[in-house]
Simulated scan of single mutants.
Amino acid sequence: MKILDFLVLLGLHSAAAVIHSMKNFFTVSSQVPNFPEFVAVGMVDDVQIYHYDSKTRRLEPKQDWMNRVAEDDPQFWKSYTAICLGYHQLFKGYIETLKHRFNQTGGVHIFQWLVGCEWDDESGEVNGFRQVGYDGEDFLSWDVKTNTWIAPKQQAVITKNNWNNDKVLMAYYKYTITQELPYWLQKLMMYGRSSLMRTELPSVSLLQKTPSSPVSCFATGFYPDRAEIFWRKDGEELHENVELGEILPNHDGSFQMSVDLDLSSVTPEDWRRYECVFHLSGVKDDIITKLDKTAIQTNWGKTGDGRDGGPSGFPLGAVIGGVVVLLLLVVGIVGFFLWKKNNNCER
Protein backbone atom coordinates (compact mmCIF):
# COMPACT_ATOMS: atom_id res chain seq x y z
CA MET A 1 0.00 0.00 0.00
CA LYS A 2 1.39 3.41 -0.95
CA ILE A 3 1.69 6.04 1.75
CA LEU A 4 -0.75 8.44 0.11
CA ASP A 5 -3.32 5.63 -0.28
CA PHE A 6 -2.86 4.87 3.40
CA LEU A 7 -3.43 8.52 4.28
CA VAL A 8 -6.69 8.56 2.35
CA LEU A 9 -7.75 5.41 4.22
CA LEU A 10 -7.18 7.17 7.54
CA GLY A 11 -8.77 10.41 6.36
CA LEU A 12 -5.76 12.53 7.29
CA HIS A 13 -5.98 15.05 4.44
CA SER A 14 -8.64 17.01 6.27
CA ALA A 15 -6.31 17.64 9.21
CA ALA A 16 -3.12 19.62 9.52
CA ALA A 17 0.08 17.89 8.46
CA VAL A 18 1.76 15.75 11.11
CA ILE A 19 5.14 14.03 11.07
CA HIS A 20 4.81 10.41 12.26
CA SER A 21 7.82 8.37 13.29
CA MET A 22 9.01 4.88 14.12
CA LYS A 23 12.17 4.41 16.19
CA ASN A 24 13.96 1.24 17.27
CA PHE A 25 16.60 1.57 19.99
CA PHE A 26 19.10 -1.24 20.59
CA THR A 27 21.59 -1.05 23.48
CA VAL A 28 24.39 -3.45 24.38
CA SER A 29 26.33 -2.81 27.59
CA SER A 30 29.47 -4.27 29.10
CA GLN A 31 29.95 -4.71 32.85
CA VAL A 32 26.96 -2.57 33.85
CA PRO A 33 25.71 -4.00 37.17
CA ASN A 34 22.04 -4.90 37.60
CA PHE A 35 21.24 -4.09 33.97
CA PRO A 36 20.49 -6.46 31.04
CA GLU A 37 23.37 -6.81 28.62
CA PHE A 38 21.03 -6.19 25.69
CA VAL A 39 17.83 -4.08 25.55
CA ALA A 40 15.57 -3.31 22.59
CA VAL A 41 12.78 -0.72 22.67
CA GLY A 42 10.40 0.25 19.88
CA MET A 43 8.54 3.55 19.62
CA VAL A 44 5.80 4.84 17.30
CA ASP A 45 5.15 8.55 17.58
CA ASP A 46 7.26 8.45 20.77
CA VAL A 47 4.90 5.90 22.34
CA GLN A 48 6.62 2.69 23.44
CA ILE A 49 5.18 -0.33 21.63
CA TYR A 50 7.52 -3.18 22.62
CA HIS A 51 10.38 -4.13 24.95
CA TYR A 52 12.94 -6.92 24.86
CA ASP A 53 15.94 -7.63 27.07
CA SER A 54 18.52 -10.39 27.37
CA LYS A 55 17.38 -11.37 30.88
CA THR A 56 13.82 -12.32 29.97
CA ARG A 57 14.55 -13.13 26.31
CA ARG A 58 10.95 -12.28 25.65
CA LEU A 59 9.48 -9.61 23.40
CA GLU A 60 6.68 -7.88 25.30
CA PRO A 61 4.02 -5.60 23.78
CA LYS A 62 3.60 -2.30 25.60
CA GLN A 63 0.29 -1.33 24.01
CA ASP A 64 -2.87 -3.43 23.99
CA TRP A 65 -3.37 -2.91 20.29
CA MET A 66 0.02 -4.53 19.59
CA ASN A 67 -1.57 -7.88 20.45
CA ARG A 68 -3.64 -7.57 17.28
CA VAL A 69 -0.41 -7.68 15.27
CA ALA A 70 0.34 -11.14 16.68
CA GLU A 71 -3.24 -12.26 16.06
CA ASP A 72 -2.97 -11.38 12.37
CA ASP A 73 0.65 -12.56 12.07
CA PRO A 74 1.34 -15.42 14.55
CA GLN A 75 5.03 -15.46 13.57
CA PHE A 76 5.58 -11.76 14.27
CA TRP A 77 6.82 -12.01 17.87
CA LYS A 78 8.88 -15.11 17.14
CA SER A 79 10.54 -13.51 14.12
CA TYR A 80 11.32 -10.26 15.90
CA THR A 81 12.65 -12.11 18.94
CA ALA A 82 15.08 -13.90 16.60
CA ILE A 83 16.16 -10.52 15.22
CA CYS A 84 16.86 -9.25 18.75
CA LEU A 85 18.89 -12.36 19.54
CA GLY A 86 20.98 -11.77 16.42
CA TYR A 87 21.50 -8.08 17.19
CA HIS A 88 22.59 -8.97 20.72
CA GLN A 89 25.46 -11.14 19.48
CA LEU A 90 26.36 -8.76 16.64
CA PHE A 91 26.54 -5.62 18.79
CA LYS A 92 28.32 -7.49 21.57
CA GLY A 93 31.08 -8.16 19.06
CA TYR A 94 31.09 -4.49 18.07
CA ILE A 95 31.85 -3.49 21.66
CA GLU A 96 34.91 -5.74 21.73
CA THR A 97 36.11 -4.25 18.43
CA LEU A 98 35.64 -0.69 19.64
CA LYS A 99 37.34 -1.36 22.98
CA HIS A 100 40.40 -2.46 21.04
CA ARG A 101 40.19 0.52 18.70
CA PHE A 102 39.97 3.00 21.60
CA ASN A 103 42.76 1.18 23.50
CA GLN A 104 40.38 0.15 26.27
CA THR A 105 40.49 -2.96 28.41
CA GLY A 106 37.76 -3.52 31.01
CA GLY A 107 35.26 -1.14 32.54
CA VAL A 108 31.74 -0.07 31.65
CA HIS A 109 31.00 0.46 27.96
CA ILE A 110 27.77 1.02 26.04
CA PHE A 111 27.03 0.55 22.33
CA GLN A 112 23.80 2.03 20.94
CA TRP A 113 22.08 1.60 17.60
CA LEU A 114 19.09 3.68 16.48
CA VAL A 115 17.18 2.95 13.28
CA GLY A 116 13.86 4.35 12.14
CA CYS A 117 11.91 6.53 9.78
CA GLU A 118 9.44 9.38 9.73
CA TRP A 119 6.90 10.54 7.19
CA ASP A 120 4.81 13.60 6.51
CA ASP A 121 1.15 12.61 6.42
CA GLU A 122 0.38 15.44 3.99
CA SER A 123 3.15 15.22 1.40
CA GLY A 124 3.94 11.53 1.89
CA GLU A 125 7.66 12.32 2.15
CA VAL A 126 9.68 9.65 3.95
CA ASN A 127 12.99 10.18 5.75
CA GLY A 128 15.03 7.41 7.30
CA PHE A 129 17.77 7.57 9.88
CA ARG A 130 20.44 5.38 11.43
CA GLN A 131 22.80 6.42 14.19
CA VAL A 132 25.47 4.58 16.11
CA GLY A 133 26.74 5.69 19.52
CA TYR A 134 29.53 4.46 21.74
CA ASP A 135 30.00 5.40 25.38
CA GLY A 136 27.53 8.27 25.11
CA GLU A 137 29.02 9.91 22.02
CA ASP A 138 28.16 9.83 18.31
CA PHE A 139 30.20 7.21 16.48
CA LEU A 140 28.54 6.89 13.06
CA SER A 141 25.58 8.47 11.30
CA TRP A 142 23.87 7.45 8.08
CA ASP A 143 23.13 9.93 5.26
CA VAL A 144 19.83 8.89 3.67
CA LYS A 145 20.38 11.03 0.55
CA THR A 146 23.73 9.51 -0.39
CA ASN A 147 23.13 6.13 1.28
CA THR A 148 26.54 6.35 2.97
CA TRP A 149 27.90 6.35 6.49
CA ILE A 150 29.57 9.44 7.98
CA ALA A 151 32.27 9.17 10.65
CA PRO A 152 32.49 12.03 13.19
CA LYS A 153 35.40 10.31 14.96
CA GLN A 154 38.73 9.09 13.63
CA GLN A 155 38.21 5.69 15.26
CA ALA A 156 35.05 5.25 13.16
CA VAL A 157 36.71 5.75 9.76
CA ILE A 158 37.65 2.07 9.38
CA THR A 159 34.07 0.94 10.03
CA LYS A 160 32.68 3.66 7.75
CA ASN A 161 34.89 2.57 4.85
CA ASN A 162 34.17 -1.13 5.36
CA TRP A 163 30.40 -0.62 5.43
CA ASN A 164 30.29 1.89 2.58
CA ASN A 165 32.31 -0.47 0.35
CA ASP A 166 29.91 -3.35 1.02
CA LYS A 167 27.40 -2.77 -1.79
CA VAL A 168 25.10 -5.58 -0.68
CA LEU A 169 24.97 -4.21 2.86
CA MET A 170 24.29 -0.66 1.65
CA ALA A 171 21.51 -1.89 -0.65
CA TYR A 172 19.94 -3.65 2.33
CA TYR A 173 20.18 -0.45 4.42
CA LYS A 174 18.47 1.52 1.67
CA TYR A 175 15.70 -1.06 1.31
CA THR A 176 14.91 -1.18 5.04
CA ILE A 177 14.80 2.60 5.33
CA THR A 178 12.78 3.34 2.18
CA GLN A 179 10.53 0.26 2.06
CA GLU A 180 10.44 -2.01 5.09
CA LEU A 181 10.29 0.50 7.94
CA PRO A 182 7.73 2.82 6.25
CA TYR A 183 5.58 -0.26 5.58
CA TRP A 184 5.66 -1.26 9.23
CA LEU A 185 5.07 2.29 10.38
CA GLN A 186 1.93 2.48 8.23
CA LYS A 187 0.76 -0.91 9.45
CA LEU A 188 1.30 -0.11 13.13
CA MET A 189 -0.39 3.27 12.73
CA MET A 190 -3.41 1.43 11.35
CA TYR A 191 -3.49 -0.99 14.31
CA GLY A 192 -3.05 1.77 16.88
CA ARG A 193 -5.10 4.40 15.12
CA SER A 194 -7.56 5.04 17.95
CA SER A 195 -4.72 5.51 20.43
CA LEU A 196 -1.89 7.06 18.41
CA MET A 197 -4.03 9.45 16.41
CA ARG A 198 -6.25 10.69 19.21
CA THR A 199 -6.13 14.32 20.29
CA GLU A 200 -6.78 15.52 23.82
CA LEU A 201 -6.95 19.21 24.64
CA PRO A 202 -5.40 20.43 27.90
CA SER A 203 -6.61 22.51 30.77
CA VAL A 204 -4.78 25.83 30.76
CA SER A 205 -4.12 27.85 33.91
CA LEU A 206 -2.28 31.02 34.86
CA LEU A 207 0.06 30.52 37.83
CA GLN A 208 2.29 32.81 39.88
CA LYS A 209 4.47 31.93 42.87
CA THR A 210 4.76 35.45 44.32
CA PRO A 211 3.53 38.90 43.26
CA SER A 212 6.97 39.63 41.78
CA SER A 213 7.36 36.28 40.00
CA PRO A 214 6.71 35.77 36.28
CA VAL A 215 3.24 34.62 35.33
CA SER A 216 3.29 31.06 34.04
CA CYS A 217 0.82 29.81 31.46
CA PHE A 218 0.52 26.11 32.28
CA ALA A 219 -1.12 23.53 30.00
CA THR A 220 -1.56 19.93 31.15
CA GLY A 221 -3.39 16.84 29.91
CA PHE A 222 -2.83 17.25 26.17
CA TYR A 223 -1.99 14.57 23.61
CA PRO A 224 0.00 14.14 21.44
CA ASP A 225 3.14 16.01 22.44
CA ARG A 226 3.30 17.93 19.16
CA ALA A 227 2.20 21.21 20.67
CA GLU A 228 3.21 24.85 21.05
CA ILE A 229 2.56 27.40 23.76
CA PHE A 230 3.53 31.06 23.67
CA TRP A 231 2.65 34.54 24.89
CA ARG A 232 1.22 37.16 22.57
CA LYS A 233 0.90 40.94 22.89
CA ASP A 234 -1.55 42.81 20.66
CA GLY A 235 -1.72 39.70 18.48
CA GLU A 236 2.07 39.45 18.01
CA GLU A 237 4.09 36.56 19.44
CA LEU A 238 6.55 37.59 22.15
CA HIS A 239 10.18 36.49 22.30
CA GLU A 240 11.55 38.87 24.94
CA ASN A 241 10.96 38.40 28.69
CA VAL A 242 9.60 34.93 27.90
CA GLU A 243 10.93 31.57 29.08
CA LEU A 244 9.59 28.40 27.47
CA GLY A 245 9.64 25.16 29.43
CA GLU A 246 10.07 21.62 28.10
CA ILE A 247 7.24 19.26 27.20
CA LEU A 248 7.01 16.75 30.06
CA PRO A 249 5.04 13.51 30.36
CA ASN A 250 2.23 13.00 32.87
CA HIS A 251 1.62 9.69 34.63
CA ASP A 252 -1.45 8.98 32.48
CA GLY A 253 0.38 9.24 29.15
CA SER A 254 -0.62 12.83 28.43
CA PHE A 255 1.76 15.79 28.48
CA GLN A 256 2.31 19.16 30.12
CA MET A 257 4.23 22.31 29.28
CA SER A 258 4.42 25.94 30.37
CA VAL A 259 5.73 29.32 29.29
CA ASP A 260 6.65 32.14 31.70
CA LEU A 261 6.16 35.86 31.11
CA ASP A 262 8.09 38.48 33.08
CA LEU A 263 5.70 41.36 33.84
CA SER A 264 8.04 43.41 36.01
CA SER A 265 8.16 46.24 33.45
CA VAL A 266 4.49 46.02 32.44
CA THR A 267 1.95 48.38 33.97
CA PRO A 268 -1.32 46.90 35.28
CA GLU A 269 -3.21 48.85 32.62
CA ASP A 270 -1.35 46.98 29.87
CA TRP A 271 -2.05 43.47 31.16
CA ARG A 272 -5.17 43.21 29.01
CA ARG A 273 -2.96 43.40 25.90
CA TYR A 274 -1.37 40.02 26.67
CA GLU A 275 -2.69 36.52 26.06
CA CYS A 276 -1.38 32.97 26.18
CA VAL A 277 -1.86 30.76 23.11
CA PHE A 278 -1.79 26.96 23.12
CA HIS A 279 -1.70 25.15 19.77
CA LEU A 280 -2.04 21.37 19.35
CA SER A 281 -0.92 19.87 16.06
CA GLY A 282 -3.85 18.60 14.02
CA VAL A 283 -6.39 20.78 15.87
CA LYS A 284 -7.74 23.81 14.04
CA ASP A 285 -8.67 26.09 16.95
CA ASP A 286 -6.13 27.34 19.49
CA ILE A 287 -6.80 27.74 23.20
CA ILE A 288 -6.40 31.43 24.05
CA THR A 289 -6.16 32.58 27.67
CA LYS A 290 -6.33 36.31 28.37
CA LEU A 291 -3.96 37.69 31.00
CA ASP A 292 -6.40 38.47 33.80
CA LYS A 293 -5.13 39.16 37.30
CA THR A 294 -8.26 37.72 38.88
CA ALA A 295 -7.74 34.42 37.05
CA ILE A 296 -4.20 33.86 38.30
CA GLN A 297 -3.75 31.04 40.79
CA THR A 298 -1.09 31.97 43.32
CA ASN A 299 0.36 30.91 46.66
CA TRP A 300 0.23 34.51 47.84
CA GLY A 301 -2.76 36.79 47.64
CA LYS A 302 -6.13 37.59 49.15
CA THR A 303 -8.74 35.21 50.47
CA GLY A 304 -12.28 35.33 49.20
CA ASP A 305 -13.38 37.68 52.01
CA GLY A 306 -10.51 40.12 51.43
CA ARG A 307 -8.32 39.10 54.36
CA ASP A 308 -4.55 38.73 53.96
CA GLY A 309 -3.69 35.22 52.87
CA GLY A 310 -0.62 33.08 53.30
CA PRO A 311 0.42 30.13 51.14
CA SER A 312 -2.45 28.81 48.98
CA GLY A 313 -4.57 31.80 50.08
CA PHE A 314 -5.25 30.27 53.50
CA PRO A 315 -6.14 32.97 56.08
CA LEU A 316 -3.17 33.89 58.25
CA GLY A 317 -5.50 34.45 61.20
CA ALA A 318 -6.64 30.83 61.02
CA VAL A 319 -3.03 29.64 60.86
CA ILE A 320 -2.00 31.73 63.88
CA GLY A 321 -5.11 30.69 65.81
CA GLY A 322 -4.42 27.03 65.05
CA VAL A 323 -0.85 27.36 66.27
CA VAL A 324 -1.96 29.03 69.52
CA VAL A 325 -4.49 26.28 70.20
CA LEU A 326 -1.85 23.64 69.52
CA LEU A 327 0.63 25.31 71.88
CA LEU A 328 -1.99 25.54 74.64
CA LEU A 329 -2.78 21.87 74.18
CA VAL A 330 0.91 20.91 74.43
CA VAL A 331 1.36 23.08 77.55
CA GLY A 332 -1.70 21.47 79.11
CA ILE A 333 -0.42 17.93 78.45
CA VAL A 334 3.06 18.74 79.81
CA GLY A 335 1.50 20.37 82.90
CA PHE A 336 -0.65 17.31 83.55
CA PHE A 337 2.32 14.94 83.51
CA LEU A 338 4.36 17.26 85.78
CA TRP A 339 1.44 17.44 88.23
CA LYS A 340 1.07 13.67 88.18
CA LYS A 341 4.81 13.22 88.77
CA ASN A 342 4.80 15.59 91.76
CA ASN A 343 1.82 13.83 93.33
CA ASN A 344 3.57 10.47 93.00
CA CYS A 345 6.72 11.87 94.67
CA GLU A 346 4.73 13.16 97.65
CA ARG A 347 3.27 9.75 98.41
Rank of each mutant, 00 (worst) to 15 (best):
Y52I: 07
H88K: 12
E60P: 03
D252F: 09
Y172V: 11
K55G: 04
N103T: 14
I247E: 10
D46V: 01
L85C: 08
L327C: 08
V69T: 04
G133L: 12
G301C: 05
N24A: 08
K341M: 08
T199Y: 03
A15Q: 07
T289F: 00
T294K: 11
S29G: 14
I287E: 03
T199Q: 06
M190A: 02
Q75H: 08
L85E: 13
D46M: 02
A295W: 00
D135L: 01
L316D: 01
M170H: 06
G42V: 05
G221A: 05
E200S: 07
H239T: 12
W271A: 12
K167E: 11
P152T: 07
N344I: 07
L248N: 11
T176I: 15
H239Q: 06
T176M: 13
Y52C: 13
D305V: 06
E346W: 00
M170Q: 02
T178N: 08
S265R: 10
G124E: 02
F102L: 15
S312Q: 13
W119F: 15
P249H: 00
S265Q: 10
Y50Q: 15
D121M: 07
P182R: 08
L188D: 06
I247H: 03
Y223F: 03
G310H: 08
D121A: 14
H51A: 07
W77S: 08
V277W: 01
L90R: 12
P36F: 08
I287A: 04
C117N: 05
V324G: 04
C217D: 06
N161C: 02
L263E: 13
L328F: 02
W65V: 10
S265I: 10
V283Y: 01
V277G: 09
V47A: 10
I19S: 13
R347Q: 15
V115P: 11
V324I: 11
I3E: 10
T294H: 07
E243D: 15
G107R: 07
D5V: 06
W300R: 11
V157Q: 12
L181D: 06
L85I: 04
D262I: 08
D121F: 03
I19G: 06
G313P: 12
K92W: 00
K62R: 11
A16S: 12
D234I: 05
S79K: 11
E228Y: 00
Y52E: 10
F218C: 10
I150R: 05
N164P: 04
M190D: 04
H251P: 02
I287Y: 01
G86M: 03
C117R: 01
L185Y: 00
V44L: 09
